[in-house]
Measured scan of single mutants.
Amino acid sequence: NQASVVANQLIPINTALTLVAMRSEVVTPVGIPAEDIPRLVSMQVNRAVPLGTTLMPDMVKGYA
C-alpha cells in the first residue's frame, strides 16, 4: 500500500504548504504520493483543507 499526503493541520485556502502541515499515511482513496512531499513545499492549496484530509492533485496549485 502506498502512503499518501494527509493534512496534519487545517490548511487555509491559498496557504503555502510546509513540512509541518503534511504527513504521510496509507489511506483510501489514494491521494498525492508521500514521496512528493518535498515537491509540495511552498506550493499553495486552492481550497481549505481540513485536518486529516488526503491531499488530491487538484487541491494543489501547479501540482497536476
Rank of each mutant, 00 (worst) to 15 (best):
L10D: 15
V5S: 01
D36R: 08
D58Y: 11
I37W: 02
P33D: 05
P29G: 02
A48G: 08
I37H: 02
E35T: 14
I37V: 04
V45R: 00
A64F: 10
A16C: 12
Q44L: 14
A3M: 12
S42G: 15
Q9D: 08
I11Q: 01
M59C: 05
A7T: 11
D58C: 12
T54K: 00
N1F: 11
T53D: 10
N8Q: 07
A3E: 10
N46S: 12
T54I: 08
K61T: 14
V30L: 15
V60S: 04
V49T: 03
V20D: 14
G52W: 02
V20A: 15
T53F: 13
V26N: 09
N14G: 13
I13D: 11
A34V: 07
N1C: 13
S24Y: 08
P57A: 11
V5A: 09
A3H: 08
I13R: 12
P38N: 14
L51S: 15
P50W: 06
T28I: 10
V5Q: 01
V20E: 15
G52V: 01
E25S: 10
V6T: 04
R23W: 05
A16H: 13
P12W: 05
P33N: 08
G62P: 00
V6G: 03
N46F: 00
N46G: 07
P12M: 08
V5F: 02
K61H: 12
R23E: 05
Q2M: 12
A3Y: 10
S24E: 11
V30C: 14
N1W: 12
S24M: 13
L17C: 05
N8Y: 02
K61G: 06
A34Q: 03
I11S: 01
S42R: 10
L40V: 03
V26C: 12
A7Y: 00
P38E: 10
R39Q: 10
V49G: 03
G31Y: 04
G31D: 01
Q2I: 12
V45C: 05
M43I: 05
V27G: 03
N14F: 08
V26A: 07
I11T: 03
V41A: 04
T54C: 05
Q9H: 13
I11H: 02
G52Q: 02
G31N: 03
M22N: 03
Q9F: 14
Q44I: 13
I13N: 14
N46H: 06
T15Q: 10
A34C: 08
I13H: 10
E25L: 09
L17Y: 00
V20T: 15
I32K: 02
R47H: 07
T53V: 12
V5E: 02
V6L: 06
V60P: 01
L17G: 04
E35N: 10
Q9A: 14
P12Q: 10
M22Y: 01
M22D: 04
T15E: 10
A7I: 06
I37L: 11
Q2Y: 15
P38I: 10
V41D: 04
Q9C: 12
S42T: 14
V26L: 15
E35Y: 10
A7E: 01
V5L: 01
M56Q: 12
T53K: 09
V26P: 05
A21P: 03
D36Y: 13
V5I: 11
V49C: 07
I37D: 03
V49L: 07
N1M: 15
G31K: 01
V41T: 04
N46I: 13
E35R: 09
T53Q: 13
G62H: 08
V20L: 14
V60D: 04
P57Y: 09
L55Q: 01
S42K: 12
L17K: 00
R39H: 11
V26Q: 09
Y63I: 05
V5M: 01
A21L: 14
N8C: 09
T28A: 13
V49K: 01
Q2T: 12
I13L: 13
D36C: 14
E25I: 06
P12A: 09
V20Y: 13
Q44C: 11
A16I: 15
L55K: 00
N1H: 12
E35W: 10
S4Q: 01
V6F: 00
M43T: 04
V60M: 04
V6R: 02
L17N: 03
M22F: 00
G31H: 01
P29N: 03
Q2F: 13
N8V: 07
S24I: 14
Q9S: 09
A7D: 01
V41S: 03
I32L: 04
T15M: 10
G52H: 08
K61E: 14
A48M: 14
L55A: 03
G52T: 00
N46P: 02
N14E: 07
K61N: 11
L40G: 00
A3T: 07
P33C: 09
A7V: 10
P50R: 10
G52S: 04
A64W: 07
N1Y: 15
A16Q: 15
Y63L: 05
T53E: 11
Y63K: 05
Q44K: 13
T15V: 09
R39W: 11
P38G: 10
A7H: 00
R47V: 14
D36W: 10
A16D: 08
Q2L: 13
A48Q: 15
V60Q: 01
Q9W: 09
P12G: 07
I13Q: 12
R47G: 05
G52C: 04
D36V: 08
A48S: 14
P12E: 11
T18W: 03
V26D: 09
M22I: 08
P38L: 13
V27R: 11
K61L: 10
Q44H: 15
I11C: 05
T28H: 10
